[in-house]
Computed example of a mutant assay.
Amino acid sequence: MPRAAAPLDTHLLRVLCTLMAERSVSRTAIKLNQSQPAVSNALKRLREIFDDPLFSVDKGRLIPSERAFDLHERARSALAEIDGMFSAPKQFNPARAQLTFRVGSPDFLSVVFLARVVERLRREAPHVHLSVHALGPDFDYQRALADGELDVVIGNWPEPPGNLHLAMLMEDEIVCVVGRNHPFARKGLTAEEYLRAAHIVPMPYSVAHRGVVETHLASMKLSRNAAVVLPYFGMAMHLLPGTDLVFTTSRHFAEHFAAYLPLAVLPAPFDFPRMRFYLLWHERTHHVESHRWMRELLGAVGRQQLAG
């Protein structure tokens, strides 16, 4: 039986592989730039570790045992893996890459932003898959990033978490949306009317997340009437026509729906901060070339979004 606890290092594996190729202790010593006694000592250690003679001598030539042949294949494979650890990583080629990127995103970005991301991804990296994970209050996106369940998260935190890498994706004006026949659609709305109105409010998509609107109103010791609370932003637009409801969201999201639904987009009556969208990622992917490429693609689409 092999001595499992015996030390087996890469030097011994290289000696074994070279002995198999050269079938000579002296030529192995020359090939490895070692002395013959050093190679002979390594062979002795190999024999002790694997409890097998490994080689016999016939007419001055080493003859491998069956065990040596078996070990040789495994040693070559192990050395190739070890050498690969120290070789330069392969250059990422998006046109040929076959991998999956996992993105966590609130649903309000899927309409415009992610549509453009998918368009570019299919054009530039046709073999790359994209898996989009919905964010919700019961989903720990920070753990998911750390564990590799997600590669990047998109969100609009007033104060993004400080323990992750961060890049600004884009920012947008906050507006109000109502049905086209709503009284506010013709005259706009005042701050007092806004606070009295019935609002559609999305559920927070993270345990630690508090939206820009709620944060700003709370800073003034104000709150709005959350008459309808929804898990998805896209639902809100379809509930507005024919009702007295108000929905507060980003302009790019509102104008997309207003192009084909009977809606009116109005200036917000409060000086809300601009809604800022961020990319968040973990240290484990920070230096990975393929992930850098994906983050750059997302950033480029964000800049395109701002340019219209």
Results as ranks from 00 to 15, higher is better:
Ala5Phe: 14
Pro7His: 06
Thr10Asn: 12
Arg14Lys: 13
Leu16Asn: 01
Leu19Tyr: 09
Met20Trp: 02
Ala21Gly: 08
Leu32Cys: 01
Leu32Asp: 00
Gln34Pro: 03
Asn41Lys: 15
Leu43Pro: 07
Ile49Met: 04
Asp51Ile: 11
Pro53Lys: 11
Ile63Arg: 14
Leu71Pro: 10
Arg74Met: 12
Ser77Val: 07
Ala80Trp: 07
Ala80Gln: 13
Glu81Ile: 14
Ile82Val: 15
Asp83Ile: 14
Met85Arg: 15
Ala88Trp: 04
Pro89Met: 05
Ala97Trp: 10
Asp107Arg: 02
Asp107Lys: 01
Ser110Thr: 13
Val112Asn: 09
Val117Trp: 04
Glu119Trp: 01
Glu119Thr: 06
Arg122Asn: 12
Ala125Thr: 09
His127Ser: 12
His133Ser: 14
Ala134His: 13
Pro137Ile: 13
Asp138Ala: 14
Asp140Cys: 07
Ala144Asn: 00
Leu150Arg: 03
Val153Trp: 02
Val153Glu: 04
Ile154His: 02
Pro158Val: 09
Pro161Glu: 00
Pro161Tyr: 06
Leu164Pro: 06
His165Ala: 05
Leu166Val: 10
Ala167Gly: 08
Leu169Val: 07
Val178Arg: 06
Gly188Tyr: 02
Leu189Gln: 03
Tyr194Asn: 02
Ile200Ala: 05
Pro204Asp: 00
Tyr205Met: 09
Ser206Thr: 03
Arg210Phe: 07
Val212Gly: 01
Val212Leu: 14
His216Ser: 13
His216Leu: 10
Leu222Ser: 08
Ala226Met: 10
His238Met: 09
Pro241Trp: 01
Thr248Trp: 03
Ser250His: 10
Ala258Tyr: 05
Ala258Gln: 04
Pro262Trp: 00
Leu263Phe: 04
Pro269Tyr: 06
Asp271Tyr: 07
Arg276Ala: 13
Leu279Gly: 03
Leu279Lys: 04
Ser290Lys: 12
Arg295His: 02
Leu297His: 03
Arg303Val: 12
